[in-house]
Design a protein around this nucleic acid. Sequence first.
DNA 1: TTGAAAGCGTTACCAC
DNA 2: GTGGTAACGCTTTCAA
Lengths: 321, 321
Amino acid sequence: MKKILDVMDKTKYKPNFVARVLASKKKPRLVCLIPFHTPENMYWKEPLEGIIKAEKEIADYGVTTSYSLFNQYLPDSFEKKTRDVLNNHPDGVLLAPVFSKQASDFIKKLDNLKIPYVFIDSKLNKANNLSFFGQNSYRSGMLAAKLMEFSCLSKGTIVIVNIGTEHENIHHTREREKGFKTYFRNNTHGKLLHVLNISSENMNNMDSLLEVPDTDISGIFATSSVHIIANYLNHKRKGQITLIGYDLTNDNIAFLKKRIIDFLICQKPREQAFRGIYALFHHIVFEKQIRKNNLMPLDIITKENVNDYLEFELNKEGYYE
Amino acid sequence: MKKILDVMDKTKYKPNFVARVLASKKKPRLVCLIPFHTPENMYWKEPLEGIIKAEKEIADYGVTTSYSLFNQYLPDSFEKKTRDVLNNHPDGVLLAPVFSKQASDFIKKLDNLKIPYVFIDSKLNKANNLSFFGQNSYRSGMLAAKLMEFSCLSKGTIVIVNIGTEHENIHHTREREKGFKTYFRNNTHGKLLHVLNISSENMNNMDSLLEVPDTDISGIFATSSVHIIANYLNHKRKGQITLIGYDLTNDNIAFLKKRIIDFLICQKPREQAFRGIYALFHHIVFEKQIRKNNLMPLDIITKENVNDYLEFELNKEGYYE
DNA sequence: TTGAAAGCGTTACCAC
DNA sequence: GTGGTAACGCTTTCAA
């Protein structure tokens, strides 16, 4: 037995993965557990697109993919879907662990079954996940602050707006706010920041913005749903207010082109999911080593580069059309 | 014969590329024709790294890669290497057509031999290239101008500096300057721009910067070699001068972290080359359709996101470590 | 436990 | 051209 390994070493034997895939009767089953998107919240459409793209590319290798989509506001929905996933007896799982408690229970079961899993969007600490593809929300807040500093220094008040964070996306928005504040604390001379929390119900009554003590607002940082603020500014007033927000949704892109929004920070949700699937694929089929933590670069999108960005995005995950 | 095709249609026959690769005795040979890098100009190191990374990933498919590296300042060197390439009888060529005339002659030969080729960095018009991976230099200039506008509006003079463009990189730098100027013409109210051309020989005598009429400089846009300006500002003076330049070289990164350079625009040369190789691979081995024009997104790098960016870059072309 | 043979889905090749 | 068979480099299976 040892002799065999010796010979393998000496002759520098390297298995041919193409032959291995062909001979193997294995048809790895991947299951994706992410929220479904709705007309009101399209964010989760992008990860789904990334998954579908990856799926097509790896079909020739015998990999099949299925989805269990849950309601991002209902922990019970998530919990119910985890059971669906397990019933599927998957060889690998891609999941967005939006409900920490339920997700923790779930991955314990996956650990026991020795099923590899990859997190996207957010992660659980101390988990045995194969990999994680996400974003550094804290630093994205610092980045936003730098852009804001450059355009607003020595002018009026800067407002941080948190919209409808009572149940969605809460972890990310908190971190963004923290990063933003930290940057200002460290880099500007006590510049005043005003924080505004707007619940989902009051979303449409943006006039509360006007209640900011110093009415001379020079910049707004929206930790989420920047399109709502853009819409307000578009109708009511814009002046020289610098507006910075997140995500390349269609609404946001339109406001960016109209110069209502000045900067958008994008973290490539489509690519996160695409790479998550690929990580599982490479691990299961090719037995490749997978990098555990993968923070996507913080891309800054402006009117000037948005078109290049979109054109490229459409095809970026595949190397071909 | 037709019947066979009919049956293929009816049964929706799809060839399995994995089996095809295994059975095929073809060992596609790819040749790369790009400049070599030197201690003075490390730019071309990155594309080479991208190629090597791609090479490893596709070795299992029988693809082999070789290089013909030329001197980026000597057309003769390029021309000589094109002959090496042809002697190699490649199945695909990746090239940076830095010398248009010589490159035009070369691709005519490739066309005749029906050898597919991919451009990186720059391209030739009206060529039958399989694909192109590059950058939109013009729009990158506009992007730089927007960043400059945000940080310098209503302050002092803005200077565009072209360094050592008498022979290197000339097309890109011209386009960058053009884009920058266009943005200012369209978006600011006649803000004055001062252009400074510094030849390679005078590179070290940066004091000519001081000759700018209005000595109150608020921003500098370096269309190339920004580290030279950064070095000067670092020793002589910095004040509140906003400095914007190109490329994530080690020097530049250090100045970015020291806040001497404020923004770097990066166009992912490593990824350009990596994707170029993949395009050839997918075309030759998998007969996939390849997208002809691929402009990389214009990434804005600051002190705040540079670390995330670098960490990710190291592994970004592969999906694994 | 070991070895030999069959088979994965395609291309390559040789005979007709 | 067409048809049949070997071969690609592995995994799987089954018999010893």
